[in-house]
């Protein structure tokens, strides 16, 4: 469907007005909102994510593409919600308590949204309890924790332990990431996964959700 390909291409160029116009046109043409989402927006973001991972493009390109994605998503969301289209899953994300960095976390949110997940972004400086409360409230199967500081990394462990002490282990998985975070750290604190970058975080979240289904 060439209109959907145009949406994906326009999204990659970061043209938010054009993406919104094309999505509107696709809806007027009677196309299925889920198809517009998957074959237009998600397909476009997948290319953007891959190009960023290879550093063929850079953060500004990703942010502009994300803006275009949200412009299209804003039109689709109400229709998708009423149409009962299942999302890839719900993920609660945030930077842990004491950590005010949010660019990396935002990037993960963009890529998860672009992969069809429902993302609840709690922002930065989020205390452990809020992560777990939000996950329960929104029925999220995954909590994504970000930290850019070695001083705030230990808070990740507090979240993992809170999930356990509330008896939610297995039902809510925890994935961690951020510059100083590593696979070994994730294992040591008992987290379920580690995302090296935004693209790999999406892959890992997909695997976590798949394992739960």
């Amino acid at each position: 469907m060439s209109l959907l390909r145009d949406i994906a291409a326009s999204l990659q160029r970061g043209e938010d007005d054009q993406v919104a116009a094309l999505v509107g046109q696709a809806l007027d043409d009677g196309l299925d909102p889920a198809a517009i989402l998957h074959d237009g927006l998600i397909a476009g973001m997948a290319v953007v994510g891959e190009q960023f991972r290879e550093r063929e493009i850079f953060l500004p390109d990703v942010l502009l593409a994300a803006r275009a994605m949200y412009a299209g998503l804003g039109l689709l969301k109400p229709l998708l919600a009423t149409g009962g289209v299942p999302t890839a899953g719900t993920v609660v994300i945030g930077s842990v308590q004491g950590d005010l960095h949010d660019i990396g976390k935002n990037l993960v949110g963009i890529m998860l949204t672009g992969a069809g997940f429902e993302v609840i972004d709690l922002g930065n400086d989020v205390p452990p309890q809020r992560f777990v409360d939000a996950a329960c409230q929104h029925g999220a199967g995954v909590i994504g924790l970000s930290a850019l500081l070695t001083t705030t990394m230990p808070v990740m462990k507090d979240v993992v332990e809170l999930v356990r002490s509330r008896g939610l282990e297995g039902r809510i998985k925890v994935i961690v990431g951020g510059a100083p975070v590593s696979d070994a750290w994730a294992r040591q604190i008992g987290a379920d996964a580690y995302g090296y970058d935004a693209a790999s975080a999406v892959e890992r979240v997909r695997a976590l959700v798949g394992a739960q289904a």
Binding site: T150, M153, A179, P180, S182, D183, A184, W185, Q188, I189
Partner: peptide, 8 residues
Amino acid sequence: PESRDGAL
């Protein structure tokens, strides 16, 4: 940074 025995 590398993680060794949990320490960075």
